[in-house]
Lab assay of single mutants.
Amino acid sequence: LQLFIKTLTGKTFTVEMEPSDTIENLKAKIQDKEGIPPDQQRLIFAGKQLEDGRTLSDYNIQKESTLHLVL
């Protein structure tokens, strides 16, 4: 599923993930694309901070959802 990642600077980029992927996987993918170390990434969806060990489906993140990346 394609997700939109929006940064505080207003930049938006996309990543391609599976619902079974963990937040950790997502942070690694963001590191590949943007060079931001996972330990500096905080991801927010629907007002909640996402925890590394959980999956996208745990948070009911669907295709074309927008996640906010806070550094």
Rank of each mutant, 00 (worst) to 15 (best):
E16D: 07
L67Q: 02
R42N: 11
T66K: 05
P38L: 11
I61L: 09
I61N: 02
I30A: 01
I44E: 15
M17H: 06
S20N: 07
Q49D: 15
D32M: 08
L69A: 02
E34G: 07
M17R: 01
E34K: 08
V70A: 13
S65Q: 06
D32S: 14
L67W: 02
K29F: 15
E24A: 08
L56C: 03
G10N: 13
L26I: 11
D39K: 10
L69T: 01
L71W: 07
Q40E: 13
L71S: 10
T66I: 10
S57T: 09
D21A: 11
D58F: 12
H68Y: 08
I30L: 06
L67A: 04
E34W: 05
K27S: 01
Q31A: 09
Y59D: 01
D58Q: 12
Q31M: 07
K63I: 08
S20E: 11
I36Q: 05
I36D: 03
D39Q: 13
L67M: 04
L1K: 04
K29V: 13
V70M: 12
E64R: 04
E18N: 12
N60T: 04
P37M: 14
L1Q: 06
E51L: 09
G53W: 11
T14C: 04
Y59F: 04
T14E: 07
Q2W: 14
I5K: 00
L56Y: 01
K33A: 11
T9G: 12
Q31V: 06
Q49Y: 06
K27P: 00
D58M: 05
T14P: 08
T66R: 05
D52L: 08
H68C: 04
K27T: 02
L3G: 00
T66Q: 06
R42K: 13
N60V: 04
A28D: 12
K29I: 10
E24L: 10
E34L: 15
E51T: 04
L43M: 04
E34R: 05
Q40Y: 14
K33G: 11
F4G: 03
I30C: 02
P37N: 12
E51V: 06
Q40T: 15
M17G: 08
E18F: 10
G47H: 08
G47T: 07
K63R: 07
K27W: 03
F45Q: 04
R42D: 11
K6T: 11
F13R: 01
G47C: 03
E16C: 04
I44D: 10
E64Y: 13
R54T: 15
L1A: 04
L50Q: 00
P19M: 13
D32L: 08
T7D: 11
K33I: 07
L56A: 06
L3P: 01
F4C: 03
L26G: 00
A46M: 07
E18T: 11
S65W: 07
A28H: 05
A28C: 04
L8C: 05
K29C: 03
S57F: 12
H68G: 10
L50P: 01
Q41H: 11
Y59A: 03
H68V: 13
L43R: 00
K63M: 14
T9S: 13
I5L: 04
E51A: 09
Q41S: 04
Q31G: 09
P19N: 06
G53N: 15
A46H: 07
I5A: 00
K33N: 12
I23Y: 02
M17P: 02
G53I: 12
G53F: 14
L3V: 06
R42H: 13
G47E: 14
H68M: 08
K63P: 13
K29W: 13
L26W: 00
R54S: 15
T66V: 13
L67V: 15
D32R: 09
D39A: 11
D39H: 10
L26P: 00
S20W: 05
H68D: 15
S65G: 06
G35Y: 04
E16M: 10
R54Q: 07
L43A: 01
E16T: 15
P19C: 04
F4A: 07
F45C: 02
L50A: 02
D58S: 13
L50T: 03
V70K: 15
P38N: 13
Q40A: 13
S20H: 12
K29G: 03
I23W: 01
Q62N: 09
F45L: 07
P38W: 12
R54E: 05
N25S: 13
T66L: 13
M17W: 09
L26R: 00
N60P: 04
K11S: 15
T9Q: 13
D39I: 15
I61H: 02
D32V: 08
A46Y: 15
L67Y: 05
E64D: 08
T12K: 04
S65H: 07
V15K: 01
L8K: 13
D52F: 09
T22W: 14
A46S: 07
N25E: 05
F13W: 09
V70N: 14
T14H: 07
N25I: 09
E24H: 05
L71Y: 06
I23Q: 01
Q62R: 08
D58V: 04
F4P: 02
Q62W: 09
I36S: 14
P19A: 11
V70S: 13
T66G: 03
S20R: 10
L71H: 14
D21N: 11
K6F: 10
V15H: 02
E64V: 06
L1M: 10
K48C: 04
M17I: 10
K6H: 08
S20Q: 13
I61C: 01
L71E: 14
A28M: 05
I23E: 00
Q2Y: 12
T66F: 11
Q62T: 11
V15I: 11
V70L: 15
K6D: 05
L43W: 05
P38I: 15
L69S: 01
Q2F: 13
L1R: 02
Q40M: 09
I61V: 09
K29Y: 14
Q40F: 08
F4L: 10
Q31N: 10
F45G: 02
F4N: 06
T7H: 09
T55D: 05
E34I: 14
T14R: 12
K11E: 09
N25Y: 12
M17L: 10
G35F: 06
L43Y: 07
E18Y: 15
T55A: 14
S20D: 15
G53C: 03
L26E: 00
L71Q: 06
H68L: 05
E16I: 11
I36N: 04
K63V: 10
L26F: 02
L3M: 09
A46V: 15
Q2S: 14
R42V: 13
I36M: 07
T22G: 05
D32N: 04
F13M: 15
T14W: 12
K27E: 01
T22C: 03
Q31I: 02
S20P: 06
T14M: 10
E64I: 05
L69M: 12
K29A: 11
K33V: 12
Q2E: 12
V70G: 07
Y59M: 04
A28L: 14
L56F: 07
P37Q: 11
N25Q: 06
E24D: 13
D52S: 14
L8I: 14
K11D: 12
S57Y: 10
K6I: 13
Q49P: 07
S57E: 14
Q49V: 06
T66S: 07
S20I: 13
L26N: 00
V70Y: 12
P38H: 13
F45N: 02
L71D: 13
K48I: 14
I23K: 00
D32H: 08
K48H: 08
L50I: 04
L71P: 12
N60G: 08
P19T: 10
E64L: 08
V15T: 03
Q62L: 15
I30H: 00
T9P: 09
N60R: 06
L8P: 05
I23L: 09
